[in-house]
Design a binder for these strands. Sequence first.
DNA 1: AAACAACCTAGTAAATTTCTAGGTTTTGTA
DNA 2: TACAAAACCTAGAAATTTACTAGGTTGTTT
Lengths: 133, 133
Amino acid sequence: MLVTTKGRYALRLMIYIASFPDRKVALREVAESECMSLKYLEQLAHELVSCGLLSSARGHGGGYYLARPADEILAGDVLRAAEGSTSPVACAALEEGGEGCPREDICSTIAFWAGLDKAIEDYVDGVTLADLT
Amino acid sequence: MLVTTKGRYALRLMIYIASFPDRKVALREVAESECMSLKYLEQLAHELVSCGLLSSARGHGGGYYLARPADEILAGDVLRAAEGSTSPVACAALEEGGEGCPREDICSTIAFWAGLDKAIEDYVDGVTLADLT
DNA sequence: AAACAACCTAGTAAATTTCTAGGTTTTGTA
DNA sequence: TACAAAACCTAGAAATTTACTAGGTTGTTT
């Protein structure tokens, strides 16, 4: 499965936050409303902050808010932040700048996987968070 | 990852067999040539037979061969046979004839996942085994 | 009869994912 | 200034899935 629970949670979290553009959103609220583990959400939200998708305010009354306007955040950005990659296969030759798979020259499937990768990227990068909210 | 080792092995196995259209191919040969576990290949090949993609001949001199011409076997057929599905998420609402996810009516991401699913299906069903051989 | 190859069933080891646990630091508010 | 609420941080456990192994049986050709 290309997208795990983590990726789906990340997208739901981002959509939830995006639906309240005028205030900060505390994870406690998201956890209750979306039936997700608060502790898991905390880890996830932190990763999304690291990737520059969310900003946060600590302390009482704090919470998370979008780091950019919803129409400038791609679904692909969220999935890559959560999943690390949206690539359908773990094949070194598909990674940019990588050293490449030792079978690369004899592997007839590289181009096929690269094409699949592109089809997926094109789709997830064609939808913004604003489209989903 | 949408496609696991199993799916990649399945495709490589099918391509290998397709590259010898005039004879049966024993798995021992594939295992040695492609550096794959014979026992794992046996299980995999059996599944591909069950799904109607391969035919087999037992006994000395036996082996596997394509059940249909290579240009009538889609990459998607192979991946679905090996992976069970190529759907990027395990979301009941995406399965045909399923009962649907309990969050379906309030889940804003269903359509997004369905679209991703379609993008993937369109790609993998647009490539035949003959294209890869 | 012997060799070879598909077929079959179980189980195990490794990896990954999901989630829990128990904190600390920071900030607003009474 | 105490307190409550919230983000931040680290470690690890539980559950699941994946990849692979093990040891056979059955069928076919030579």
